[in-house]
Simulated scan of single mutants.
Amino acid sequence: MSSLLQHFNYRVVGQYLDIFAEGMFATLWMSAVCLVASIFFGVFVALMRMSPNPLIWRLAAGYIQAIRATPLLIQIYLVYYGLPALLPFGNFFDETQTALIALTIHSTPYMAEIIRAGILSVPAGQAEGAYSVGFSRPQTLFHVVLPQALANVTPPLIGQTAILIKDTSLFSIIAVFELMGAGVRMFSETVVATESYVTTAICYLMIYMLTLILARFAQQKLGGTEWRRI
């Protein structure tokens, strides 16, 4: 380790700090968009998965299994090359939008299964108490059940969020600039692999630590189960 630090070219890294900062910002906002979208759609897929209607829950289950059985790389290529063929007037989406759509499609089933587990973990008495004071079923779901469910599954949500953030590194294959793209750019211009990819890894670690802090704050606000070390 000491030998690596001695030969680490900090000067070259310093010249690319602005590029890495730009890449981190791109990774953060794209991850945030995909996270919010996948949780939003994940709620509906989870509810479909729990539906008593066989057709509805089988459709949701089929979608979940199909996405979980195929690599994200293939899904990005399918959306990138297949979406223009499906749209009647060509592709209205640029590379960044296409990447966000692909990652949201990929992440939604995982979020749906986590949310479904969270909903099942909420005691039935919570919903019954809400009904007794006049709440409708949608009000009970969105004001009573879902907040508790999300708080109860914060640890697995953090883990899935970390995976989602790392998955953005595949965006570079369709020329979307993000953190991994910054590392690739530095390597292509300087041919120093260690400095390029160690710096990239450190940036991802910093993003993950920020995610932990935000997740702990969110769980405390939601008032879920006691925080445990992850």
Rank of each mutant, 00 (worst) to 15 (best):
G183V: 01
S51G: 12
A124V: 09
L5T: 09
K221N: 03
Q220N: 14
E178Q: 12
I101R: 01
K166H: 07
G23I: 15
S169W: 06
Y208P: 00
M30R: 14
V191C: 07
L72C: 08
V198T: 10
A124I: 02
T225C: 07
T190C: 10
A124K: 12
Y81V: 01
F89P: 00
I213M: 09
A117M: 02
V133S: 08
M186L: 13
S107G: 01
G183E: 03
V122M: 04
E113N: 08
L83D: 01
P54L: 07
T194M: 11
L72D: 06
T200A: 13
G224C: 10
L164E: 09
P123E: 06
D167Y: 06
L170G: 01
G181N: 06
P156Q: 13
G42P: 09
P156Y: 10
L157I: 14
A37K: 01
M48H: 03
R11G: 09
L78I: 09
I230D: 06
L59I: 10
M209L: 06
W57Q: 09
Y131Q: 05
M180P: 04
Y197I: 07
A21E: 08
L120E: 09
I158L: 15
P109H: 07
G118A: 03
V145Q: 01
V191F: 15
I158G: 13
Y204R: 02
W57T: 06
I165W: 11
A37Y: 00
C203P: 02
G23F: 15
A21G: 13
A117L: 01
Y77F: 14
S196L: 06
M111R: 03
F177Y: 14
V45I: 15
A66S: 09
V79D: 01
G118V: 04
E189R: 15
L35T: 12
V184F: 00
L17G: 14
Y81P: 00
L222T: 09
M206I: 14
R229D: 10
T199E: 07
P155T: 13
T194P: 01
S51L: 10
S196G: 11
A182P: 14
L87S: 03
V36F: 05
H143F: 12
Y208M: 05
I114W: 01
G129E: 07
P54T: 04
L120W: 00
L212M: 03
F25N: 11
R58N: 11
F135W: 00
R11Q: 15
G181K: 13
S38K: 06
S136F: 09
Y16V: 11
I115V: 08
V13S: 11
Q65W: 07
M206K: 06
L222F: 14
I115T: 07
R216T: 06
E95K: 10
F93R: 04
L210I: 05
M206T: 11
Q15M: 11
I67W: 15
F142K: 12
L83K: 02
L103S: 05
V43C: 12
E113Q: 14
L86P: 00
L103H: 04
Y16I: 12
N91A: 02
P52E: 14
L59E: 00
E178I: 09
M24L: 15
L17D: 08
L212E: 04
R116C: 05
I64V: 13
I207P: 00
K221V: 02
P54Y: 12
G129D: 08
Q97L: 03
F92G: 02
A162F: 01
I74Q: 10
L83M: 04
A60E: 03
